[in-house]
Each structure stands twice: as C-alpha cells, then as structure tokens.
C-alpha cells in the first residue's frame, strides 16, 4: 500500500497486542471521562442517563467499524465504504418519502421501534440487491463500483431534494431535524433492539471469522484455498447491510466515519489480520465518538455537532487516500 509507505508507521516495533492494549486503555479513559466529567447532579440520575448514551455510541462505533472493515475486505479495496456506496442517501430518501406521503405529524406518531425495523429492512433489501449484483460477478472494476455508488447516491439525493422542494415548509423543518446525524441517543428501547440485531449478526460473523483473512487475498486465491466465495461474500454483505442499517437508523448518516476508522486501524496496526484490525477499528471508533463528544461538549463547551467534525476529518482522509492513489 502506497499509503503505508508514504506515512511513517506509528508503531514500527510494536506488536499487535501492545497497540490493541493501548487503544483499549485510551477508549476506556474516554468512556470513563464521558460518564464522569462535568457531572453536577445526583449520580443515580447521571449514570443511567449517560450510560444509555454511552451504550448507544459504543454500539454505533462497533457497527460502523466492523461493517466498513468487512465491506473493504470483500470488495478488496481500502477506499469504498458502504456509506460512500449510497447508503446514507437511501436513509435520507426513506425519511423524506415518509414525511412526504404521511405528513410529519403521522410520522412522529409511528412507533419508533416499528419505524426502525422498517428502515433496516428497506436498507438490507436495497443493499442486498445492489451489492449482490455488483460483487457476485467475476471481479468488476473498482472504478465501476465507485461510479455506480456515486450515481445511485446522486439519484437518491435528487429524488430527495425534489420531494423536499415541493413539501410544506413546516414539514421540511421537521424533516431537517430528523436528518442531522446526532450521537445523542436517548431511546433505550431502540438501543435494546439494535443491540439484539448487532449481537445476532456478530454471532453469524463469528462462525465464519476464519474466512475473513482468506477473502482479503482476493476472489481467486480465496476460491483456490477452498472458501465458498459466493456464499461467504453474500453472508458478509448481509451482515454489513444490517450493521450499517442499524447504525444509520440510530444516529443518522455519517458518510466518512467508517473510512476514517478503518484507515486509521490499518495505519496503526502492524498486522492486517482481522483478529487485530476489527478490534482496533472498533476501539478507534469508540475513541473518536466518545472521546470527541467529551472534548467537544464538556471540555470545550461547544454545542457544535460532533458528526460535522468527524465528517470533516473523515472527508480529508478520503481525499488523501484518493490523491495518494490507493485506487488503482
């Protein structure tokens, strides 16, 4: 990887275990900080309140990190992520369609759990169709994939902006509020549903864990080594679809976050084995969201949205990767 060579490796002599431990300690500090810094109330209130938010952030961090790394493994590249392939645009479209057809009042009345399930199902179906078509073939070019993703994203965004133009201004205000990514999740019901789904797909993933490293060698090598490539890729894409859906439905669209944490994980880990990269990416994601939230809200006392900062940094990483020519 040209990026690996271009940037000095952060830990030239460190073993994967050492890096993971360091990341875990940092993530733990961030989590403890989030639970305690600036708490001026009764602990019996502060801890459960912040605990639920923290649990939400950890879930999202895990879902985004794992889904991005696995997606990059099955597509054999380090630059495409599910979000870049138009996932977030679909989420926005679904929200807009709902408000457009039902009206904001009715939409806010829908049971959020039901809504959540509906969104997840829609996105899994969409990604199932698209990705299956794109990746089951005999190795399509990365540029075609990128192009298809961008075009589909534009299509969704165009439909969305058309609908938003013809919508009632009041409805639009409600809609806009729903569309900003926010890591302040308060709904514990949703958290339980999400945790259940993420746990379920993680179990499935655990059972085929040994295929991940082999799949990273590319389709031909994986088949040569006896992996049922089509089956494994389909299964992983479903896992990815569910993870991304859950995280998008929980916090809204974050396009470049996955890319950011996956790239950082590959950068700091001296090994590209999944047993090292997956935990590293998850810990980095936790560090970014939780640590970022602490610094932004508590220390700097800013009301700026963390998602904007993350998107900004992630976007810069994306551009850097493109400019350094990781896409070949």
């Amino acid at each position: 990887m040209s990026l690996d060579r271009a940037l000095p490796r952060l830990a030239p002599k460190a073993t994967p275990g050492m890096v993971l431990t360091l990341l875990a300690v940092l993530a733990l500090i961030a989590m403890v900080g989030f639970m305690t810094v600036g708490a001026n109330g009764r602990w019996s209130f502060v801890l459960p309140f912040r605990g639920a938010k923290l649990a939400g952030m950890v879930l999202v961090a895990y879902a985004v990190a794992v889904s991005t790394v696995l997606f990059q493994t099955v597509t054999n590249n380090r630059i495409l992520t599910p979000s870049i392939m138009g996932f977030d645009a679909l989420y926005v479209l679904i929200q807009t369609l709902l408000v457009f057809h039902l009206g904001s009042l009715r939409v806010t009345e829908i049971d959020p759990r039901l809504m959540f399930l509906g969104e997840v199902v829609a996105m899994v179906l969409f990604s199932g169709l698209l990705y299956r078509w794109l990746f089951s073939g005999e190795g399509r070019s990365l540029h075609l994939l990128l192009l298809v993703g961008v075009v589909i994203g534009i299509l969704f965004r165009s439909i969305t902006s058309f609908l938003q133009r013809v919508i009632d201004p009041n409805e639009f205000a409600v809609l806009q509020d729903r569309l900003f990514a926010s890591f302040n999740i308060a709904d514990t019901d949703l958290l339980l549903v999400s945790a259940g789904m993420i746990g379920g797909v993680s179990l499935v993933g655990w059972r085929i864990f040994h295929t991940f490293d082999v799949l990273a060698l590319g389709r031909d090598a994986a088949i040569g080594l006896g992996v049922d490539h089509k089956k494994a890729v389909t299964l992983i894409l479903v896992i990815v679809a569910i993870l991304v859906s859950v995280s998008t439905a929980l916090v809204g669209p974050v396009t470049f976050f996955g890319l950011l944490v996956a790239s950082l994980a590959y950068q700091v880990m001296p090994s590209s084995r999944h047993k090292h990269i997956l935990p590293a990416a998850t810990l980095i994601a936790i560090l970014c969201i939780v640590g970022g939230q602490v610094v932004l809200e508590r220390v700097l006392a800013l009301n700026a949205s963390l998602s904007i900062v993350i998107e900004f940094v992630g976007g810069l990483v994306f551009l850097t990767l493109l400019l350094r020519g990781v896409v070949r």
Partner: peptide, 20 residues
C-alpha cells in the same frame, strides 16, 4: 470448495492484493 482445495491448487497470473 474445501474438498477440492485439498486436491487441487491454482496460481493465476495477476495476484494483486490489498492485504499487507
């Protein structure tokens, strides 16, 4: 696939890979 993989191996011409 795994039965065949213990009986037959293959090396293609172009072996580009992203994993380091």
């Amino acid at each position: 696939g795994d039965v065949l993989a213990r009986r037959l191996s293959i090396l293609r011409q172009d072996n580009h890979m992203t994993a380091r």
